[in-house]
């Protein structure tokens, strides 16, 4: 596979390390009342869609960016690649 890195252009996927669903960005609040349940759902449950999947890849043998790649799990077509940091900021993560 080839991941079209937003800063570097197309790179072979073997330069990257895969983590999983991009929802892993949305780490729950540790002080929430049902924090344990929230963390359980966050860490263990997956949509695992057959179709478009937003997922985290780390460019370990490259620029060390975490990316959010939107890829179809049936065709493997990649429709979008973003820097995970930007996505995290958009989703309200900060300090």
């Amino acid at each position: 596979m080839i991941i079209n890195h937003p800063l570097l252009g197309p790179r072979d996927a073997s330069e990257f390390v895969y983590l999983g669903d991009a929802s892993l960005i949305d780490r729950p609040d540790w002080q929430a009342k049902d924090a344990q349940q929230q963390f359980h759902d966050y860490l263990y449950l997956r949509d695992n869609p057959a179709g478009a999947h937003r997922e985290l890849w780390f460019h370990e043998q490259g620029d060390r960016s975490w990316l959010v790649v939107t890829r179809d799990t049936i065709t493997h077509e990649i429709t979008n690649v973003e820097l995970a940091r930007d996505v995290a900021l958009q989703r309200g993560r900060g300090r």
Partner: peptide, 17 residues
């Protein structure tokens, strides 16, 4: 196919394909 079949029952699983 667990993920896509069980999603028809509204379930999310601790499984990835």
């Amino acid at each position: 196919s667990s993920g896509r079949v069980m999603s028809k029952a509204g379930m999310r699983l601790p499984i990835e394909s």
